[in-house]
Write a protein that binds this DNA or RNA. Structure first.
Length: 565
RNA sequence: CGGGGUGUGGCUCAGCCCGGUUAGAGCGCUUGGUUCGGGACCAAGAGGCCGGAGGUUCGAAUCCUCUCACCCCGACCA
């Protein structure tokens, strides 16, 4: 493609609405333009990248036996009522105003609908069905360019198996395929254990790209390979345990001591002997959660135990239910009325300080075996930077990550609610066992740029670069330079190399160089007057920032070798 | 949904507090000329009812009210 004839709206200035590098560069390099909040038009060069990413995805999905579908984004709302997800999605799902239809935010329902009619026997499985589709989600707050949009492209795949072992195998196939896809797309990523959330199912993992632009927090350890979303991450922290002296409970006056640190300091107790009480409401049932010292409660872990409806109690509820305000609340005397649970670090501990349910008073010498009946101990902790990994062999690092994929063992949630059953070898009817596997296409592009850019622009890796080579004719007034450039353009194109040829007559050399760095093709081939006088042509490896000259008559061969290496 | 911010030529922004001729700059665009290896120079142009509606006033980009859009932080995120 000749730059003089194509549509390449590059801009020098940083668009004021863009904050993160990938967003700024996708606009500046002319990959896309914003149409509305969270809605983007992809321009030719951006769509070229998207097609490359989709090709990689298709190749790897086909390699594991996936079959590509193209499913409607416009769905009858009844389909979503069958699985009760109209309610589950709530405002996130777009509803069509003048017909009882919705814009699909994902495609479990449509897939299951087809499977229900046609996958009737164990002999017809396993199946892997996938599609690359536009999805619609009415995000409350679109942000960071393409990273959180209201309309986006997703590859979603669904596996159907007759057995749970089959599901494990399908899941594993996807896991391996995804590794190949992200690796081929030039991303370094973590595979982290993830919360199953309201989607249900027996397990899920997320593919995460480490980035400050990310919205998720991950606990990772490069020595041990541990990686988990902080929502479910665990660490090896010692329990509080028991102390020798087992004194009776004693009420002490603790004026103006609200926080654990203040109480510990006032009573000259270590923070590690303080038990913090947190109150939640599970419907109408109050729940008291005991945490050790300053350990932070992980609400996702709490939800895993009590369900998604659980919420923190409000200030008025605290006073009404316990007789005290936050900071003076404790478990003693609340049995029966409250569900009392505690973090595992407090298991069987004694010699603890806790609130007395009387403002400005605390209890000392609390023994969780003697004074309170704790119904159960769970891991409720939020892990912190620097804590030992669960196997104790490494230290956790907390990093931000962008979710570029999520694989899910769905199980039978959708097949049961939509009655997608098959007959097994015994002629018995069973629900199809499903898995669901998603990849955000635009997110791959944004992450690629987040990981491969510098102050001058994008540094596309070869696999998804919109063009292989950026050929620059430095001086369009020099007949020799033009002739040489044209010859190179023809030769490279004939060799099957995709070339972006800067043959503009109205752009200065500097302008062309800046554009080339911004657009970021892996190899720049620069034909200029001075070098050509020595019968040389300059090459520039955009990623490595390396330049070198080659003899003019081997320039094409050199470029071809570079592209194919 | 709570908090903060911004809307002025295609882009980045100034002007607004303190109302007063024809609303500015740089970049980009058009034409002509000079340049030609790191976002060139000169000259001449085109392009804006200052997000929208209402109000105050002799007079509003500027003050007031409402509204819409977009961005950021938070909440939310199958």
């Amino acid at each position: 493609m000749r730059l003089s004839q194509g549509f390449f709206p590059t801009v020098k200035e940083v668009p004021s609405d863009a904050v993160i590098p990938s967003h700024q560069l996708m606009l500046r390099a002319g990959l896309m333009r914003q149409l509305a909040a969270g809605v983007f038009s992809f321009l030719p060069i951006g769509y070229a990248v998207m097609k490359k990413v989709m090709t990689i995805i298709r190749q790897e999905m086909d390699a594991i036996g996936g079959q590509e579908f193209h499913l409607p984004a416009l769905n009858p709302i009844e389909l979503w009522e069958e699985t009760d997800r109209v309610k589950a999605f709530g405002d996130i799902m777009f509803h069509v105003k003048n017909r009882p239809m919705v814009l699909a935010p994902t495609h479990e329902e449509v897939i299951t609908h087809i499977a229900k009619d046609h996958v009737k026997s164990y002999k017809a499985m396993p199946q892997i069905w996938y599609q690359i589709q536009t999805k619609f989600r009415n995000e409350p707050r679109p942000k960071s360019g393409v990273l959180r949009g209201r309309q986006f492209t997703m590859k979603d795949a669904y596996s159907m198996d007759a057995t749970w072992q089959g599901l494990d195998k399908s899941y594993e196939l996807h896991r391996e395929a995804y590794k190949k896809i992200y690796t081929r797309c030039g991303l370094t990523f973590h595979i982290v254990g993830a919360s199953s959330g309201a989607m249900g199912g027996s397990g899920s993992q997320e593919f995460m790209v480490e980035s400050n632009a990310g919205e998720d927090n991950l606990a990772v350890c490069s020595e041990t390979g541990y990686a988990a979303n902080v929502e479910i991450a665990t660490s090896l922290m010692p329990n509080a345990g028991r102390v020798e002296a087992n004194e009776p409970l004693k009420e002490v006056h603790t004026p103006n001591c609200r926080s654990i640190d203040e109480v510990a300091a006032f009573l000259s107790m270590p923070v590690g002997r303080c038990a913090k009480s947190l109150i939640f409401m599970n419907g109408t049932q109050p729940v008291l959660v005991l945490m050790l010292g300053n350990d932070q409660l992980n609400e996702t872990k709490l939800q895993a135990v009590f369900g998604q409806e659980i919420r923190p109690a409000q200030t008025e509820e605290l006073l009404q239910l316990t007789g005290a305000d936050a900071g003076s609340i404790g478990p003693v005397g609340l049995e029966g009325k409250f569900t009392i649970v505690a973090d595992k670090r407090l298991e069987e501990a004694n010699g603890l300080v806790c609130g007395a349910n009387k403002n400005d008073y605390h209890l000392m010498n609390l023994d969780l075996k003697r004074d309170v009946k704790v119904q159960a101990y769970y891991d409720f902790r939020m892990v912190e930077e620097g804590e030992p990994t669960p196997d104790g062999k490494g230290k956790l690092r907390i990093v931000k990550g962008i979710e570029v994929g999520h694989i899910f063992k769905l199980g039978t949630k959708y097949s049961v609610s939509m009655k997608a059953n098959f007959l097994d070898e015994q002629g018995k009817e069973n629900p199809i066992i499903m898995g669901s596997y998603g990849i955000g296409v635009e997110r791959i592009i944004a992450c690629h740029i987040e990981q491969h850019h510098d102050e001058f622009g994008i540094k596309w890796q070869k696999s998804i670069a919109p063009y292989d080579v950026h050929l620059i004719c430095v001086n369009m007034n020099s007949e020799a330079v033009v002739k040489r450039s044209e010859a190179l353009y023809a030769e490279l194109t004939a060799a099957g190399i995709s070339v972006l040829f800067d043959d503009r007559t109205d752009a200065s050399a500097g302008f062309k160089f800046k554009d080339a760095d911004l657009l970021g093709m892996p190899l720049q081939v620069i034909v200029g007057e001075k070098n050509l006088k020595n019968n040389e042509i300059e090459m520039k490896d955009r990623s490595a920032g390396k330049r070198w000259n080659v003899a003019a008559d081997v320039a094409a061969a050199e470029a071809i070798a570079f592209v194919r290496s």
